[in-house]
């Protein structure tokens, strides 16, 4: 991103031009990334449509979208954290803990469903808050802070549930949160993902919150020195990510009509992969919500397509791994050339 250094003798107008050029380059690069990701998605869709007659049917496309919902919601939230240069490994098992808390409140305590949903979201927010405090004030590296939370959440989910699934069969309407269709033939879980994507897009690109998220990721020290309370913003950012985790937990429980306490390990890596494929930089300072959504779709289109073609499960993993590696390599290549 850095332009060639200007000599002090240069006229101010030159500086302005350079800045302008820099901004345009940044915009163009962002467009290129999303363009690449989107292009990949289109190529995959075309490829699988040609490879199998049964791929491009509404039933299957709707299945792909539904399969994207949980990972997609996790990925949207964690985009903020990764944009600050952090990482959140607690989202997979955190989502499970949120689902279990929803079950405890709505099933075991028998409170109205809305309290169960709120309990799930609040659980996510609380875990995010603790992550944020550990990172911002206790100065734990995000990797370690959230790794610890990942284990705590996994353990608590098992303890609180008594190591058995909680079924929502006695809670009418809960399943509809994920599987009802407010828009005909589009599952609500998908609708929720798109609404949250719009919210996240607004937050990241149109608000002070979003600007500070990017600023902290670009240079936390400089942001702090310019008078921003970066610690407080970091806590807010991790908490917002936690809210997304909580919502993902509720959607997951609704889709399965049950809270499965052993689920969730590995989901965080899929979500992180979706974010990275979408062009958000692991180094921080650059994040894209549209990219994350496309990244999550690429992952599930790829997996679904390979399944439709009856490719062996082992090879599916190999292909997905290679695609992630290529995506990140392409990203780093662009950075190196300073495009």
């Amino acid at each position: 991103m850095s332009q060639t250094t200007q000599s002090p003798a240069d006229a101010p107008s030159d500086e302005a031009v350079a800045k302008e050029r820099g901004a345009r380059a940044a915009l163009w690069r962002k467009g290129l990334q999303q363009g690449l990701a989107f292009g990949t998605l289109v190529v995959l869709l075309l490829f699988f449509s040609i490879a199998s007659n049964n791929f491009f049917t509404w039933s299957n496309i709707s299945g792909i979208l539904l399969a994207t919902a949980v990972i997609g919601i996790l990925a949207l939230g964690t985009t903020f954290v990764i944009t600050t240069g952090g990482i959140d490994l607690s989202i997979g098992t955190g989502m499970t803990l949120a689902a279990v808390m929803t079950g405890i409140v709505a099933v075991n305590l028998g409170l109205p469903l809305i309290f169960g949903v709120l309990a799930g979201i609040a659980t996510g927010a609380l875990m995010g808050l603790i992550n944020g405090i550990n990172v911002a004030y206790l100065k734990l590296p995000p990797f370690i802070a959230t790794l610890a939370m990942m284990m705590v959440a996994q353990g608590l989910a098992l303890v609180i549930s008594g190591v058995r699934p909680i079924y929502f069969s006695g809670v009418p309407g809960f399943k509809d949160i994920a599987l009802g269709t407010l828009i005909p033939s589009l599952p609500n879980a998908v609708l929720i993902m798109f609404i949250l994507a719009a919210v996240a897009y607004f937050l990241l690109s149109k608000t002070v919150f979003g600007r500070y998220t990017v600023a902290i990721g670009s240079n936390e020290e400089a942001t702090r020195l310019s008078g921003v309370n970066t610690n407080r913003w970091l806590v807010t950012i991790y908490t917002v990510a936690g809210v997304f985790t909580g919502i993902a937990g509720v959607v997951l429980a609704a889709r399965l009509d049950s809270a499965q306490p052993q689920l969730g390990v590995g989901y965080e890596l899929q979500a992180i992969a979706a974010v990275i494929i979408g062009g958000t930089s692991l180094l921080g300072g650059r994040g894209s919500i549209v990219g994350t959504l496309i990244g999550a779709l690429i992952m599930s289109v790829l997996i679904n397509g390979l399944r439709i073609m009856s490719i062996q499960t082992e090879w599916q993993n190999v292909v997905v791994g290679v695609v992630i590696a290529i995506a990140v390599f392409a990203d780093s290549l662009r950075n190196r050339r300073g495009l």
């Binding site: 049964n54 299945g63 949980v70 997951l252 889709r255 689920l263 679904n304 399944r307 439709i308 499960t313």
Partner: peptide
């Protein structure tokens, strides 16, 4: 037997696998 795939006993992944199988084999 037209297809065998593995979902690690994960409810969510197994559901998505079954849907893909049903789509692929009308």
């Amino acid at each position: 037997i037209v297809d065998i795939q593995y979902g690690d006993g994960d409810h969510l992944r197994s559901a998505d696998i079954a849907k893909a199988m049903i789509a692929a084999h009308p």
